[in-house]
Simulated assay, not measured.
Amino acid sequence: MPEIVNSYTQSMPKVTFIGKKYGDEDRVDGGFGSKWNEWLQNKWFDTLEEAYGGREVSQQLFTDGDAAIGLMRCKEGEPFQYWIGMFAPADAQAPEGYQSVDFDSSEVGICWLQGKEPDIYGKEDRCMARLAEEGFKIGTDDENALWFFERYVLSRFTPNEQGELVLDIGFFLE
């Protein structure tokens, strides 16, 4: 059973998320792993980094700002959105074939979920509950949509001796 091994808040400056948007129709066996494989095979993260000046630029945005992101949007009555991409500087332009979403500066609540694949996926509710227990209120955007993300930090998302890795789950806070 995956365990939340760390939780904290972090400041995120105004950023642009650049990536590709998927929906429930893009799931294979319930998840988006096949899309992640497509990204890695096609080196689409390299294209993003080149578009806004390289990994060093994203590393300077905020702690773990250079991580690959699975960004999600939920709103009752609207289709679920799952984006794969990266956070970039606010003035970054999406290269051809990519889309972008702008986010104002904000506080984000982060949980580190440690466990084995595929058990670590789909545990956002547990992370949301943990942040609420710690007194944080999850925010929504101007359209009352909930945005949250998986953050794949390579130094943590690498299996340890027990085959466990850490997936960051982040929520924008009020």
Rank of each mutant, 00 (worst) to 15 (best):
S155T: 14
F45E: 10
D29F: 14
F17E: 00
F32G: 02
G135M: 04
E25R: 15
M86R: 12
L131R: 02
I4R: 02
G70D: 07
F87S: 04
I169C: 03
G170T: 08
W36R: 09
F171A: 02
G135V: 07
K20Y: 06
Y22A: 03
F17I: 03
P13I: 05
W44K: 09
I4E: 00
L61Q: 05
Q59R: 15
A94N: 06
E25F: 15
F45R: 06
G122E: 05
L131W: 01
L113Q: 07
W112A: 15
L40R: 14
P159L: 01
I4C: 01
W44L: 14
L154D: 14
Y121V: 04
E164M: 08
E134A: 09
S11R: 15
N37G: 14
F32T: 02
E174D: 12
E50Y: 10
S106K: 13
D125V: 10
K21C: 12
F62V: 14
R151V: 09
D125Q: 11
D26W: 08
R126M: 09
E133R: 08
K14R: 15
I120D: 00
L146D: 02
G97S: 02
Y22I: 09
G33E: 14
K14T: 14
Q41R: 12
T63E: 14
V15S: 00
R126K: 14
Q99T: 13
F87D: 03
R27V: 07
E133L: 12
P13K: 06
V15F: 03
V108C: 06
K116W: 09
E150P: 00
V153F: 02
F62R: 07
Y22P: 04
M12A: 06
G135K: 03
Q60R: 15
W112V: 15
R130M: 11
N6A: 14
F172Q: 10
A88K: 05
W36V: 13
A51M: 03
G65M: 07
Q99M: 13
E134V: 09
Q10I: 13
Q162L: 10
A145I: 06
A129W: 07
L40F: 15
G170L: 08
D91W: 02
K43T: 09
Y52S: 00
Y121S: 01
F80R: 05
Q60I: 13
P118K: 06
V15K: 00
P89E: 04
M72Y: 11
D46A: 14
R73W: 08
S7P: 05
C127G: 01
P79N: 06
G54H: 03
V5D: 02
G170R: 11
D119C: 08
S155R: 10
V166L: 10
G54D: 01
A94L: 05
Q59V: 11
T158M: 07
S34P: 11
Y121N: 00
S155K: 15
E164I: 07
I4Q: 00
E3G: 03
E38M: 13
D141N: 09
F103E: 02
D168H: 12
I18R: 04
G65S: 05
K75D: 01
G163R: 04
E124Y: 10
C127K: 02
E164G: 02
E117W: 11
V57D: 00
D29Y: 12
Q60T: 12
E50R: 13
G33I: 13
F136Q: 11
